[in-house]
Design a protein around this nucleic acid. Sequence first.
DNA 1: CGCGGGTTTGATGATGCTCAAGCCCGGTGG
DNA 2: CCACCGGGCTTGAGCATCATCAAACCCGCG
Lengths: 191, 191
Amino acid sequence: MPASSLIQQIQQHIELTDTEVLLLANYFKPHHFKKKSFLLRQGQDCRTMYFVEQGCLRMYFINKKASEQIVQFAIDGWWLSDYFSFMDGTPSEYYIQAIESSEVLIIEKLQFEEMLGKLPKMERYFRIMMQKAVAAAQLRSKLLYEMTKEEFFQHFSTSFPGFMQRVPLYMVASYLGLTPEYVSEIRKKQV
Amino acid sequence: MPASSLIQQIQQHIELTDTEVLLLANYFKPHHFKKKSFLLRQGQDCRTMYFVEQGCLRMYFINKKASEQIVQFAIDGWWLSDYFSFMDGTPSEYYIQAIESSEVLIIEKLQFEEMLGKLPKMERYFRIMMQKAVAAAQLRSKLLYEMTKEEFFQHFSTSFPGFMQRVPLYMVASYLGLTPEYVSEIRKKQV
DNA sequence: CGCGGGTTTGATGATGCTCAAGCCCGGTGG
DNA sequence: CCACCGGGCTTGAGCATCATCAAACCCGCG
């Protein structure tokens, strides 16, 4: 069993014995997803959390104009889930799709709770992950308040140059809440 | 010692013995804040988390146009902090101010860590709180994507009618990212 | 070579902001 | 008890930002 990137990440926050590592490994099921395959569809309950070991996922919904609105990306080392659906057991309004061929660790809600029962120290790891996610949400929110969409785009593309190569521009545009046409205009000025 | 609303909230998620309750009570320091007094100012490190027992706080920053941009409210039973500053120890860019006379429980970062060391089961409580905060952020983000500002305002005011009575309209406007003038226009149409 | 996904162009227009002014109303001091 | 003050809300004109729509273009790939 290779020490997965998840186990490494966990060990950055809590100490694990070898037996605990083995125990943990049972709860996280590795899955391969081909490009364009779906991990979750609108209307299904999101019973799982996804950890991207390698690849890239997007979470999106279909808006009133019947087009795809991306709300979140996840790349190597990131968690992704519809936490509302996950916690309440309500049907999700999102699709989760692989936009690259991806290696993903999956944990089901029931397994998640069982794991936390058997290895309570994992509560700490997830508390820290969630706290970071809240911090990230606060930061993003602040940027949205203080920047124009043009600035927001520039900020994103300079902050994550690598990511820009990795996914089509129109997806980034969608995630940032702007149209491909407008992004095009921004970039024209830019040069 | 009165069973504070915080202890009650914690006990909805984890079991606590009487001695644990007593132990906990040492970590959360009750403070009273008068209307308009500050809990945190821009430039200070946000070393604390705030739990509102009773009252109302706002978190805001000063934007380029030198006006106050509210990013978060907290009322009875809610946690509030600048989690970025709290975790990294970097100076905060926010002000936190009481907009009503408020009863607040305060925990310092060092105490927070010590408490988690002594009562590891509190990790679970905070994991759940943070997870809920992430879910809320996801929901808010979705609403922002799919609604016009007018719809966003209507949605907010029908979702939290009680809150609308409690704080001045221009603060709600700021929080929702719109100008008091525009809110005024919306409400005119409304009637 | 042709197809189709992704990007660009340009014209038009809506959404929501800015600025300046005035109004309303509750509180405070004379 | 009244006048005034000032915080909060409203009005209206003008304007910037950014979306919409239709069309063309570009280019990698089967």
